[in-house]
């Protein structure tokens, strides 16, 4: 049974735009947005293709503290162009991570937190967006030696494409039940492999395979959290102070290779069969 009073008191993360997510998650004192909307660092590519831009290119970077720990939060706006990563938005995240790396090297660690609500690269910006995503990957790996790099996927968009690799590279990944995580999104798989392979309208099937619950059960994400700002804030407050560790999913290359070898691509995967295969090959942490 759902506790109605609890549900009414909760403040949803999924329903908030990117900037409000940062403002709600960081300690209220000392928040400072970097390269905010009034800097007007917008996409140079979208107007050439007759598409309206957003003044912050759909990425919010905010410095501040979380439970007293210095953090830099990067949030992708899910409503703008499907949370896609363009050249400018991607460069903003890469720049924030580069600053965090310089801080870590100078002995003043700032923990990066990435709120990844993104369909991946912005197709209209193609290679420019992909180049930025590659820089983000590189910096996450470099940062992991100094600080925990924390990824959060809450929904509604989920995290796909090159940015799902960024999520996979994070030291810790936090997801909600509403989150989805996958290299290709449902519509892309259906378009490429056919509706028999993957029906992008079958929501229970999609969440059973790509959903947050499944990703935690199979060890591809570390923490599950309710769609609740207070709960996520509590969890982040604890994780930003945790020791730097390489998560099991990044150390388990051989086990994942065994898992891939054991999978029969002709057999139709279900949530349950996938969980069994992960458990059988010991790929679940």
């Amino acid at each position: 049974m759902t506790d109605v009073a609890d549900l009414l008191e909760r403040q949803s993360i999924v329903e908030l735009p990117a900037r409000a997510r940062c403002q709600a998650l960081l300690d209220s004192a000392g928040q400072r947005e970097l390269l905010g909307p009034f800097e007007r660092l917008r996409s140079p590519w979208l107007p050439k293709q007759d598409i309206v831009t957003q003044a912050d290119d759909g990425v919010v970077i905010m410095r501040g503290t979380l439970g007293g720990q210095a953090v830099v939060m990067a949030a992708v706006e899910p409503a703008f162009q499907g949370g896609s990563m363009g050249e400018v938005g991607g460069a903003k995240i890469a720049g924030a991570l580069a600053c965090a790396l310089a801080d870590a090297e100078n002995g003043t660690p700032v923990v990066p937190i990435l709120l990844l609500e993104t369909g991946g690269v912005r197709l209209q910006e193609a290679n420019c967006g992909l180049a930025a995503i590659a820089e983000i990957h590189d910096l996450i790996v470099a940062l992991r030696a100094y600080v925990p790099v924390i990824g959060v996927v809450t929904g509604p968009v989920g995290c796909f494409g090159g940015m799902s690799i960024a999520a996979g590279l994070c030291s810790e990944l936090i997801v909600t039940r509403e989150a989805r995580l996958g290299l290709n999104g449902p519509q892309v798989i259906e378009q490429e492999a056919g509706v028999d392979e993957f029906d992008s309208r079958d929501r229970p099937m999609i969440w059973s395979l790509l959903g947050g619950e499944q990703r935690v059960t199979t060890g591809l994400a570390e923490h599950r959290v309710a769609d609740d700002i207070a709960a996520l804030r509590r969890l982040l407050g604890e994780r930003v102070k945790a020791d730097v560790q390489t998560p099991a999913r990044l150390a388990a290359t051989e086990r994942f290779e065994n898992l891939l070898a054991a999978i029969d691509p002709a057999a139709k995967a279900t949530g349950e069969s996938t969980r069994e295969q992960f458990a059988a090959t010991g790929a679940t942490s």
Binding site: Q54, A55, A79, F80, Q81
Partner: peptide, 13 residues
């Protein structure tokens, strides 16, 4: 600032 450039919405600076 108010709003985002999402479907059925707008951004006002």
């Amino acid at each position: 600032l108010a709003g985002v450039v999402g479907s059925g919405d707008l951004e006002v600076l």
